[in-house]
Computed example of a mutant assay.
Amino acid sequence: MTSIKKVDIYKCIDFAHENELFDKLNSIYNTLPSGECTGCGKCCNESVGINLVEFINIYNYLKDKEKLRKESLDRILDYYFLEYIEKRCCPFRDENNRCLIYEVRPLNCRLFGHWKKDDYNKNLDNVTQRNKDYQELMKSKHGFDISDEVVNFKIKYCENFKPKKDYLDKATRLSFSDEIMTLDSRFFANEIIDIEFRDRGIVEYFIESLLHQNVAYNIKLRVSKDEKIRERTINRLKRILIR
C-alpha cells in the first residue's frame, strides 16, 4: 500500500480543476520575478521541497505522457534508493541540462537565483550542518556511513544568474510560499486527501505515491548497507512499480 493513494491523487486533480487551483497556482507563478539564466543545470541537483498542490500539478502534467512518466519514475527510484550512496542530479533534468517538467516546475526552482547571496550562503551552511548531523545519526543508529560526497555536496550560489530587478529578501520569498500553502490548505480543509502534513521533496512525494513511506525507507536502508542486493532490489522494484 502507498502512503499517497492514487485514487486520492485523482480526487485532488478533479478538485483542483473544479476549484481552479491549478489556475491560481499559475497566477502565483506568474507574479514571480524573472531573470537571465545560462541554463547550466548546476542548480538541478536535489529533490527540491514542494507543496502538495505542486505535486498534484506535476502528477497531472505527467499522467498522459507515458514515456516521460515512466522515464521519470525510473530516475526517481534510482535517486531515492541510492541517495545515501551517490549524488545524482534531479530526476527531471535531462542529459542536455533541460528541465523535463519546465512548464510545471515548482516554486523553489523558479526562485533559485533570486536569493541575496548572504541569505543563500547562510542557508547552505545550515543544510550542510544538518547533513553532517544526519550522517552521525545514521552511523550510530544503523551502523553505516552516508557517503561524504552526498553529505558535503553543495549547490553553490549562482553568480551567473541575473534578476531583471532586485534580489529577493527572505520575507518576500516566504510570501510566495505562503500563498501556495493557502492552496494546499484547500485539499486538507475539504478532506480530499488524508496524508501527514509535512515537508516533502519532489522525489519523496512520488515515492510515497508508489510505496508506503515506512516500507520505502526500510528498503532504502537495506540497499544502502548491502551492495550485493542493491542493483537486484532496485531493478525488481522498477519492474513492479513502473507501469
Results as ranks from 00 to 15, higher is better:
F15L: 07
G39H: 11
I28F: 00
F153P: 10
C12Q: 05
E227A: 15
V215A: 11
L32G: 03
M138I: 15
R198T: 14
I219F: 08
K11H: 08
C109I: 02
G113H: 03
F187V: 00
K70A: 05
N131I: 09
D178V: 00
C37D: 11
C89W: 03
E204Q: 15
K11I: 06
K238F: 01
K156R: 13
K132Q: 14
R236I: 03
D74E: 09
D78R: 03
E159Q: 13
S47R: 04
E46R: 13
E83L: 09
I229E: 08
L77Q: 01
F22C: 11
Q129V: 11
T2I: 04
E179G: 00
I76G: 05
S224N: 11
I229G: 06
P106K: 03
F15S: 03
Y134R: 15
K139A: 05
Y102E: 10
V7F: 08
V7Y: 10
S27G: 06
L82A: 02
L52W: 06
Y61V: 02
K70I: 04
H114S: 10
R98H: 08
L137N: 11
E103D: 15
S175N: 02
V48W: 01
T31K: 07
T31L: 02
Q213D: 11
F81E: 07
D178G: 00
A171Y: 09
D199N: 13
S3W: 02
F176G: 01
V151E: 07
L137I: 14
G41T: 08
R75C: 03
I234L: 08
C158P: 10
I101C: 08
P33V: 08
I240T: 14
A189F: 05
C158W: 07
K228S: 14
K5N: 12
N126C: 07
K154H: 04
R243F: 06
G39E: 10
Y10R: 14
Y134H: 14
N218Q: 15
K225P: 08
I240C: 03
S140D: 06
L77D: 01
K141E: 15
F187L: 02
F22K: 10
V7M: 08
E191Y: 03
D74N: 15
F55D: 02
Y84K: 15
I146L: 09
R232F: 09
R236E: 14
N190R: 12
E54G: 03
H142S: 11
S34N: 14
Y61D: 04
A16E: 03
E227F: 12
D74L: 04
D133R: 13
L52P: 05
P33F: 09
L183H: 00
L111C: 06
E36D: 14
N60G: 05
V127C: 05
E149G: 09
T233Q: 06
C12R: 01
D74Y: 12
R110G: 00
M1Q: 08
S72L: 12
L183Y: 00
F206I: 06
D178S: 01
E196G: 06
D184A: 01
I56R: 03
K65D: 14
E95R: 13
V48Y: 05
L183Q: 00
N126Q: 14
A16P: 04
L68P: 08
K154V: 11
